[in-house]
Design a binder for these strands. Structure first.
Lengths: 251, 251
DNA sequence: GCCATGCCAAATGTGCACATTTACGTATCA
DNA sequence: TGATACGTAAATGTGCACATTTGGCATGGC
């Protein structure tokens, strides 16, 4: 078996250098969720030492995660000056929405060529779910299903590149929505989704694109700059208090 | 060894650990270029120690670059087993081409709403360049300008998200082209580009999309699986011989 | 009173020394 | 002879110590 070689010095029961890829993912998911939920105020600095202390992992692990999030443009990285929560401008938000609009126009163009009854049925089933959630006033489900509708459209093409791009856009817009919160009922109106499906069923591409466009403009028009209405916090400890796998003890 | 340290230039610190962020970028660009140029055979393992030796930098530097390339899906990462040059299937290639096709359909849809004479003039000027390169037989310029045409179309929208997505698709397809090399004259036929511009000028969206679609299908049809025709090498030293910033002891 | 300068604590960046895992050659046995 | 087990070398993963940089604060000069 393994020769038990204990490193002298700071062992003291704590796990020293072991491979644990799950820990990376846990920290990554925790910070990502905090970003997506809007729990972190825009401009907040994410320093390595306090995060390492909060999560009870080494600084290098935090470091790796922060750089990964930076590469995904979910954090703003400043050389030698650390990572900060990005402060998206209203133009940034419009850019994401426009990209989603343009993408969906292309998707619809491709869809009308390959659409079949089975897909129409699936989309209608999804619409039924959306309506059910709306009628019973389940706002969380409504928001989720509204986003899922657009995911359905893209995934109907079965193209991994397009699906990935849409997922990126959606996660990005969800962050921004927390800043420029619409705070209205549901993000997407179900009847607009239904109109898109109906246009697809009749292979009316021009109408499908027009409805989709109006739909996105409608959603976009609800955005408004609302600076200090966001309940986001700056205190990292309170933000990550719930998901703390810490092993270290307090000093 | 040599205690001589230069402040300027790339004084590749072997024993001395100094900050040099430009070195990261140099290594990254070198490997990325090798990938884009198709110099690396699909399936080749990129181990850290030999690369560190070749570039004359520390292993951690190589490590960081490899992981970055893995996050960009330009390398295949296997936990505890290193990085390998991906081996794209023909379906992968078709997926990228289809994504490009779908994206451009959306871009054209948006473009016909905002197009003006100045843009038409710029596009025509670009077409003239393409024709000039084609008539003088400059294949390298033809390929470059052909790709730039599609970049022009997207950048006319001024949307950073869409531009980034297209750049990603283009770099990905250029890698794949080296595997499934078309080896024909030019990637894009100039007259097809001209037809797109003409359709845009007359605001004929349906025709623009149809031409674009045919254009992409035309390019895609040239692809063919050509296993061992690729001149890619497996020997890392020879691949990176030209871009070796390594410092010798005494010279 | 205000700006410039220098010092110090904290944070970031990096090389290095291990631990762990994988790959591979060799020996042993059925 | 072939397949399995084993031991060793190499490669990957990680924590740690240290260099470098940054930001703030105090001091002193104008």
């Amino acid at each position: 078996m393994a020769t038990q070689r204990r490193r002298t010095g700071k062992g003291s029961g704590k796990r020293n250098g072991k491979a644990n890829p799950a820990e990376d993912e846990a920290v990554y998911q925790a910070i990502l969720h905090a970003l997506l939920e809007g729990k972190l105020k825009a401009g907040t600095k994410l320093a390595e030492p306090p995060l390492a202390e909060i999560f009870g992992v080494s600084r290098e692990r935090i470091r790796k995660v922060l750089h990964r999030l930076g590469a995904e443009r979910r954090l703003e990285m400043f050389p030698n000056r650390g990572a900060r929560v990005p402060r998206p401008t209203l133009d940034d938000v419009r850019s994401v929405y426009e990209a989603h609009r343009v993408l969906e126009a292309g998707v619809l163009t491709q869809l009308v060529r390959h659409i079949d009854d089975a897909l129409i049925d699936r989309l209608n089933a999804h619409l039924a779910e959306e309506r059910a959630a709306a009628t019973r006033g389940d706002r969380a489900a409504s928001v989720r299903l509204s986003g899922a509708f657009h995911v359905y459209l893209v995934e109907a093409l079965g193209n991994a590149e397009l699906s990935r791009f849409l997922a990126d856009l959606l996660s990005r817009s969800s962050v921004m929505v927390s800043v420029y919160e619409p705070a209205t009922d549901s993000i997407c109106a179900v009847d607009e989704h239904g109109a898109i499906v109906e246009a697809l069923r009749t292979r009316d591409l021009a109408r499908a694109i027009a409805v989709s466009r109006e739909h996105f403009l409608h959603v976009e028009s609800r955005l408004h700059l609302d600076d200090d209405a966001a309940p986001a916090a700056e205190d990292l400890t309170s933000v990550f208090a719930a998901v703390k796998p810490r092993r270290r003890k307090a000093r």
